[in-house]
Design a protein around this nucleic acid. Sequence first.
DNA 1: CGCGGGGTTGAGAACCGTCAAAAGTAGTGG
DNA 2: CCACTACTTTTGACGGTTCTCAACCCCGCG
Lengths: 242, 242
Amino acid sequence: MPDPRISILPFLRARDCDLLALTAHQEAALAACAEPLALSKGALIYHAGDPLEAIYNLEEGVVKTCAPFPGGGLRVAGFLGAGDLFGLAEDGRYVHSAAAVTAVRLFRFAIRTLVNLLWMDPSLDLTFLLKLCGELREADRHAALLMRKDAIGRLAMFLDELRREPWGKAALRGALFLPMSYADIASYAGLTREALSRAFHRMERAGIIAFSGRRRVAIKDERRFARLAAGAPPEDVAAAFA
Amino acid sequence: MPDPRISILPFLRARDCDLLALTAHQEAALAACAEPLALSKGALIYHAGDPLEAIYNLEEGVVKTCAPFPGGGLRVAGFLGAGDLFGLAEDGRYVHSAAAVTAVRLFRFAIRTLVNLLWMDPSLDLTFLLKLCGELREADRHAALLMRKDAIGRLAMFLDELRREPWGKAALRGALFLPMSYADIASYAGLTREALSRAFHRMERAGIIAFSGRRRVAIKDERRFARLAAGAPPEDVAAAFA
DNA sequence: CGCGGGGTTGAGAACCGTCAAAAGTAGTGG
DNA sequence: CCACTACTTTTGACGGTTCTCAACCCCGCG
């Protein structure tokens, strides 16, 4: 059975520290209290407001976290892939709901045993600390995305983010796979489904991206795509619109 | 001389853990490698992209963190108050710029000595871990704010957030003090200065808030204010059912 | 007194959200 | 295999809110 794996991006320069990989001892300790789970697409992992019971490490598949809007409605807070940790809580209650976007395999760490583990092997703390810094940078990029006012720019940033994720790129030829529904993407990007659909199609008609099947998209014009993702002035997307 | 203080909100239920306060020993260790600093309003603490040298703990005053937009321009990522930690980096470089909004006093922890400290006293790791969880929740609330489409709703959420911060409430009668410029608030809320100005005035004319002087604002109609801050976008995401 | 940054106000246009309905897709069971 | 249903995505027309641009005002400061 495979062991838990936590993917970490460096906080310090990579060459200055070797904290990025878990030692064999750490992996063993984690594996000892990890409870493997397999869930099918759409399954609810936990619900916002529920009492905190466990933290999860995603091994395979995609998970979305949603937060209830005060006053009703749900917003997608983020998408998670292999190597990610989730289960953020406040005052003993989950702040998000988590649901499987695809079929997933994950490890469950009961919070009690995890706390004990962190006490026994404090070097693990640093691992979690660095992982959390990564989540923070991710949340900040999400905020950056939401600051864009144009739908196409938001979409470009979303796709760019997806592309950078190791789990986002489909196996073949750098085409992106979109496991989640348009409703989920739209919610994450702060748009309506309609606006998202139109943005996708404007990009496609402009020749910047191309769909292969329903959920597979490839970037065709790297230069213009990068310009969009970087937030350049609206440019001549309107011209290419014809 | 006062010691560093890191304000933490509970991850677990408060009664289940006593990690919220630093022990005398921890405080001493932190103080030993803390370099106190005093900066005047507007001073730049560090610049995005600069090599990571130190983490900071804010003792008094308000600090803003800004990130450069790819393609020019600056966005305000967050406001920090007493007890907050800042200095987030990626691959050895700061991801934000940090500047003093008011005159500030802060502690500087050189990254080298801090890493050593965390190795020597791993129980401190948990403190930083929990603090970081708090920052993550904050970033998520920022995203929630940015998902609102109406300027008044965003402003209400910003004021509400400010109100919840221990450093946000002015000394007197729950009136809020706004140390930062409208440009900063607008940037944080993803609005233009004009839209922000109009939103403020609409709220004031509606009798929901009242200004005392240019930078002091009081909530006059708690019910309508709460309704604005909680106002939900009619958006609904396909919810997952177990 | 002149100057400059921050804040205000106004007019116009662009963009997205809303509502409504059709077209396409997936999953189910006969 | 096909028909049926439920869901997701697409398209269209319309209205509203914010952005843009531009000028003006206010206040503190040299």
